[in-house]
Simulated assay, not measured.
Amino acid sequence: MISLRMVGTEVSALGAAALSIPLRFVVERDRFDPGSPYPTPVVLVHGLFGDPTNFLLLRRYLAGHGMRNFAAFSYPPRFDYQRLAPRLGDLIDTICLATGAPEVDLVGHSLGGLIARYLVEMPRPSRVRRLVTLGAPYFATPLPPEELAIFAAGDPFIPPPHPIYGPHSAARQRGGRVVVVPECGHWGLLIHPTVLREAATFLAFPGSTLELAEAPLALDAAS
């Protein structure tokens, strides 16, 4: 059901995405900080017709919780995610070589999440520690164990999978996790407080605890 809150979040997310595009050159000049509390680089993969600046709010949130090393994988509008995934893998190899990091974390929105997931499931040595997908298309296969898949309950483009019969149901999981955010749409996944908190917690090093200022928000599964 569409609510005014969800519409407001979508409008805010689209407006922020449009206004932040001029900042893309600043975003791409980030430097890696080996002294960061969480030094694993976070590689951000935007969606179709998206831009690296779509993740500005998420970057700021993660940086505020100790994750300050970022890189972006950008690509022109195209649907052949199978060909884009190896290019993402090459970028990850370059990042690991340049920083000395043994692996990276991936965050992908929409088609970017599909590209990232396809890379993780390719028959090649993986340098991906954890994967967060936001409203990513899905098929009949279960999630890889290193993935947190976040869906918006009000997403008209990528509806959340059925919690019982869908490919991401608990009975079919290989270890991955699904979160469905209520009163949120496709673009709202980039700025929703629940998404920011869930992503930060999932990307934190094993055994760590993030001190989050926001009160917990309820999550529910699509029916």
Rank of each mutant, 00 (worst) to 15 (best):
W187K: 09
P142A: 10
G175H: 12
N54I: 07
P159W: 01
I115T: 08
E147S: 10
V107L: 11
L189D: 03
L58F: 01
Y61I: 00
G135P: 02
Y138F: 15
Q173N: 13
I115N: 06
V43H: 05
I150F: 01
V43S: 03
P125R: 14
R172F: 15
A215C: 04
A85P: 00
P102D: 09
M6I: 00
A199V: 15
D155T: 01
H162Q: 15
P206A: 13
F25Q: 15
A215L: 14
L106Y: 08
G100T: 03
P159F: 00
L88R: 10
A136C: 02
G15C: 05
F70N: 09
R174N: 06
P137C: 11
L88I: 10
S110W: 02
Y138P: 06
E214W: 03
P216F: 08
A72P: 03
R29F: 05
G108R: 06
S74W: 09
F73P: 04
R31G: 04
I95T: 03
D30W: 11
T94S: 14
P160G: 06
L44S: 02
P206I: 13
G50H: 03
E198W: 12
L217Y: 08
L56P: 00
A16K: 14
L189F: 08
R87F: 01
G8P: 07
F70T: 09
Y165R: 12
G112A: 00
L119F: 11
W187S: 14
R31H: 10
R5G: 05
L212K: 00
G8D: 06
F73A: 05
A136L: 01
L88F: 11
P22F: 09
E198F: 13
L23A: 14
G154M: 10
P159R: 03
G207M: 14
G175L: 10
A199L: 15
V107W: 12
P163E: 11
R197P: 02
R83E: 12
P193C: 07
D93Q: 13
T194I: 13
L114Q: 14
A116P: 06
E146F: 03
I150E: 01
S223R: 14
G35H: 10
T9S: 09
T53N: 06
E146W: 08
F79S: 01
S110R: 02
V180T: 15
V7A: 09
T94W: 06
T9K: 04
V132G: 12
L57F: 00
L219W: 08
V178G: 15
G113E: 02
L62A: 00
T141W: 07
D220E: 15
N54T: 13
E211V: 10
L131W: 08
A136Q: 02
A152H: 04
L23S: 13
P206S: 13
G8F: 03
R197N: 09
E103D: 15
F205L: 11
A213H: 09
S223V: 11
R127S: 11
F49C: 07
A149E: 03
G166E: 06
R68G: 01
L212E: 10
L84Q: 15
V178E: 14
A221H: 10
V132W: 13
G50R: 01
V181E: 10
P123Q: 11
R78I: 12
A204K: 09
H109Q: 01
E10N: 13
A101L: 06
S208V: 04
A13T: 14
T99D: 00
V128M: 13
L57Y: 00
Y61R: 02
P52M: 03
